[in-house]
Design a binder for these strands. Structure first.
Lengths: 238, 238
DNA sequence: ATTCTGTGCTCTGTATGCAGAATAACCGCA
DNA sequence: TGCGGTTATTCTGCATACAGAGCACAGAAT
């Protein structure tokens, strides 16, 4: 094997952490090559280094990543399962490109999932979990005040993800993450322009208050509005 | 290659049919080996030939299916993406087993997705599509009258799938199919006992009338109830 | 000039081989 | 007899090799 190269830091959860008791030995990050490749490719798709519609050349990618075709191909299957790639027989993988309708459809499902998550969170989440989300929100407020777009965006995503995660529903989380990954690239555009950004921020304020009060219905309502408006914000950019 | 063996009939959609003009030449069903293996394995999981919790031995399966390890392993990744298998590093694939909570969680998401689908169908579906669903329902009534459990069950699944398919929302359909595949085996149990079966059938009647009237809200409400009751029906069996 | 056909190349699909991890079997020892 | 350590075996993970499909280019025929 050649250059198993750099940039190995990863976010995917590895095998379940045994005991984060007093941090004597964290599990050493046993990341299978498969997971590493999947993560890398996912990033490459979401940050546009693999452009929508582009055909993925296996050998070229292999060379770039320093792995052989076998793990790469297995990763491609996984990514295709997440909806980021399309597998065409005898022609390999193609980066999925989204029509307007695809985006609208995704957002609709995302909306339904997050509304469900919102209701659940208010019922089942512990106070600590809610406090954590609110902390993210506060942090995001700061980033908004400083107009740090990228950190703001990442916190925004993190808040949505955390709400779903706090709903304590694994299948819900899975489905949400897949959809969110698909929309990641597109959503980023949705905050162009100061007034759109401000509107999105205001909706997040409402979400935070609803969450703090554990008002599930209110939270679901705001989330729904947030997504509808979000879609509209994207619409005229595309 | 050895015994590419029998039972090749498959359901996966091939490449898009060019022109079914006057039936000069239908596209010859070009099924990639990958898809065939995926379909086979999925069936093996849902019908229990691969039992939950069981470790999947790659070489043994290869022998059984008459393919080499490479396509099999790629299929395993795909199935893991659908949530039917779990991939443990250095230990291979394990058939996912569901706790009570997993089942409840899945049903909750399934409920939300189908409710969304129900609302959408009433808005966007063509009359033909709705007629098709109602035809399935009529057929299912017959099967119920004759107490043909397996055909009834398949039609039941088909109705739910068709409602989602008619909603014309690809991501929604994808998510729903994955969840439904996970629950397929378990749902079958839910109709044990005549009174449970009758109750489920009654709910389907309501669904049919709501659909016929294109009353999205009513349909969503019934679907929600159907799932809640469905979960309860499963509950005391497990 | 255009279209059709043949040929060569590129790339994917599949099979096989090899190395390391995990598990099971075994043996010595308390 | 129970237990710990060590060895053997099995199975996964990864790499490589080979065959066939798709595609492009070129040449021939109309």
């Amino acid at each position: 094997m050649s250059s198993r190269s750099a940039t190995a830091i990863d976010d995917r959860a590895g095998p379940p952490a045994e005991r984060p008791a007093e941090r004597p030995a964290l599990p050493i990050a046993r990341l299978s090559l498969h997971d590493q490749v999947v993560t890398r490719l996912r990033d490459m798709v979401t940050d546009g280094r693999l452009a929508p519609g582009q055909r993925v050349n296996e050998v070229a990618l292999c060379a770039g990543l320093g792995v052989s075709r076998t793990p790469l191909r297995e990763a491609l299957k996984t990514l295709a399962g997440e909806g980021l790639l399309e597998l065409v027989p005898s022609r390999g993988a193609i980066v999925r490109s989204f029509t307007d309708k695809d985006v609208a459809d995704c957002m609709m499902v995302l909306k339904a999932l997050e509304q469900l998550a919102g209701r659940l969170v208010c019922q089942v989440a512990g106070d600590a979990a809610i406090a954590g989300i609110l902390a993210l929100h506060a942090e995001m407020q700061d980033r908004y005040a400083a107009r740090d777009r990228l950190p703001y965006f990442k916190l925004n995503q993190a808040i949505h993800s955390s709400i779903v995660a706090a709903a304590d529903n694994a299948p819900l989380l899975r489905a949400h993450e897949a959809l969110q990954a698909q929309m990641k690239r597109i959503r980023f555009i949705g905050h162009e322009g100061p007034e759109k950004w401000a509107a999105a921020m205001a909706e997040h304020e409402e979400m935070a208050t609803a969450l703090a009060q554990r008002d599930g219905e209110a939270l679901a309502e705001v989330i729904g509005r947030h997504h509808d408006r979000g879609l509209a914000r994207i619409r005229d950019v595309i």
